[in-house]
Design a protein around this nucleic acid. Structure first.
Lengths: 364, 364
DNA sequence: TTGTAGGCGTTATCAA
DNA sequence: TTGATAACGCCTACAA
């Protein structure tokens, strides 16, 4: 029915303008400035544009002209499916999104797995006005900063890379939090502690244990690590707080309940059981508790268990944990991004040890 | 230290080129085509660019030039925090993201609440190569199509808007699913059924009831509705399956467990309790079960309960429900977007009534 | 109320 | 291996 169907190529403002016998500017105004032309003309132009198959002002061209995209990137070191599955992640995102949304800004989710150079390239090509990193590796942060984009991270890249010392951040003092946990367990008399961590240290597979003898090496690695800075700091803190070198580190592979359950199995089925287990996240800790219950063991009574984060389900499970203001982290990160003038831009939020039934005095 | 600090304005390729005494093209190649120039020159250019504060090729300009953004939009009719909180939503997103990720594409999350014209504008300005709508209102779909973007929806805009009849989609037959539920309950002898829905019909507040007399009006409304098409179809199906006009519709306000709990309270505390309750989502159904348990009632024994979706937690709760392939929906939506040639482009996936302990024969 | 000129920063093409 | 030119599609000035 439409007379002027363009047989090929994209219909542009110029086409619409020439067909209508008006200037390009008038067409532009018809779309963006209704007050700049007669209602009648505007209606005609819009109708004709529609009929011609004009798609409306091109977003990329408009962004180039405007110098901004109205979108903010969120970088994950993990696959995006993790971002949607993990309770910490979704809570952070919800808070971050709420602030962005209120400002009419959109979210661009970017997955940049450690070592994935293509993804790092994609980060370079993403049209965003700023970047927030909930958890990410050093190269991502460097990439974002090299692009001169406002950049906020939510775990501090401590130790490694002095070039990142001045990056904007919203964090907690993970080392102090770890120390609180260690001290708590020590006060309860625990001397034999397993630390359950999510990542794979070097080539360690799931369930691999590292005894005290490896701690020096581990902590040295900490300073060079490209990611997991919060976890490393926590571990260091836990060890400091325990003030005893008899802890063991067990790697779970990934940060999930299922993973914690499996790694927990390894820990529970070995000959010598610890009196306490600290997981570097609630999710892992809850998985460990699953493993305990599966074997008829009761957290607190048989083995004390501690997590990190204080997710809602931690309370339900009676899990002793470190509470950190997850939503506040997301909210502030978004606000720092939206308002470059806002200060301070390096924020350390308070954490709190929440003692519940899962930690009890060590036996004997 | 850097000699050539530009005092103001943005450093561009041209600046770098002139300082280096090479052409703009060479600088461009230094960034994008390492093989097009000597390694030596490339290194020099990159180093100088860095020192000059050049941010790297501008993403918007590059996208304009390339004609694509490598990002796909996901439109929600809800606030983004809902997208991260709701289990159905996160499951769909995880699957959708997985496919996109594998293709190196990014996700742009767009919240377009019903009636929010600004957000609709934002959708027009978003630089994306395609749009998927997990749940969204008609105007959003129209906007996306008007932009001539590949568009896929995951709930069919049935009835309303014949202009949308040919939109690509990945759906289930919600009406048939509803009918299965209705028939199941009817076979069990249930004649007095409450349908718990998430949205607010016209100005109805939370817990407002609509008796059979309003059904005609409700279903007529269905055909004009701008959103919630799946829910409307389900309701219509349930009523058809029950084959009796004695059902009542109760609105919960939003689709959340908490909301289902509260609306469930209204239903349970009224004088006349139904023998069965069908919620249009598992989340609502689980909330209703919470409300029952809170009053010492047992699902199935005291009141039969049915949900929709078959989330993992539905199985744990022994909830009879309609299983739909959530991840498959997300995966296929992404694949349709990424491959415009893929057929068929209107997919109806199978659903299945999963009968569990929460539905039992009606008393007496 | 409408039109004209110019540039936003890149990159494909083709020539040298 | 490198360079000049010409779009890409739009919108801010400013002029009429």
């Amino acid at each position: 029915m439409s007379e002027e169907v363009e047989s090929m190529s994209k219909v542009t403002m110029k086409d619409v303008a020439s067909v209508m016998g008006v200037s390009v500017m008038t067409v532009s105004n018809a779309f963006n400035r209704p007050d700049q032309l007669s209602a009648r003309l505007r209606t005609d132009i819009l109708a004709r544009a529609e009929k011609m198959g004009y798609a409306g002002p091109d977003a990329a061209a408009r962004q180039l002209r405007a110098g901004r995209s109205n979108a903010y990137g969120v970088v994950f070191a993990e696959r995006l499916s993790y971002a949607f599955d993990d309770p910490f992640s979704t809570a952070w995102l919800a808070a971050f999104a709420q602030v962005m949304e209120a400002d009419g800004a959109n979210l661009l989710l970017l997955s940049v797995p450690v070592g994935d150079t293509d993804a790092l390239e994609a980060l370079r090509h993403a049209a965003v006005d700023g970047v927030a990193a909930m958890c990410c590796d050093l190269p991502s942060i460097r990439q974002a900063r090299q692009r001169r984009l406002p950049t906020v991270v939510c775990t501090k890249p401590s130790g490694a890379g002095s070039d990142l010392a001045d990056v904007d951040h919203v964090v907690i003092d993970d080392h102090a939090a770890g120390r609180d946990v260690g001290a708590h367990l020590r006060a309860l008399g625990h001397r034999d502690v397993v630390i359950l961590v999510e990542f794979s240290y070097s080539q360690d597979g799931e369930g691999v244990e590292r005894g005290p003898e490896a701690f020096g090496e581990l902590l040295a690695h900490h300073d060079r690590a490209a990611t997991y800075h919060d976890t490393w700091s926590r571990i260091r803190g836990i060890v400091d707080g325990l003030d005893s070198p008899t802890s063991t580190i067990v790697t779970a592979g990934v940060n999930s309940r299922e993973s914690g359950r499996r790694a927990g199995g390894h820990v529970l089925d070995r000959q010598h059981r610890p009196t306490a287990v600290v997981a570097v996240s609630d999710v892992l800790a809850l998985g460990f508790i699953d493993a305990m219950r599966h074997r008829g063991l009761e957290p607190g009574r048989d083995i004390s268990v501690v997590g990190f984060d204080d997710l809602p389900m931690a309370a339900d499970a009676g899990l002793t944990t470190i509470r950190q203001p997850i939503a506040e982290k997301g909210r502030l990160a978004a606000e720092l991004l939206l308002d470059p003038a806002r200060t301070p831009r390096q924020i350390v939020l308070p954490h709190e040890l929440v003692v519940r039934a899962s930690t009890q005095p060590a036996p004997h």
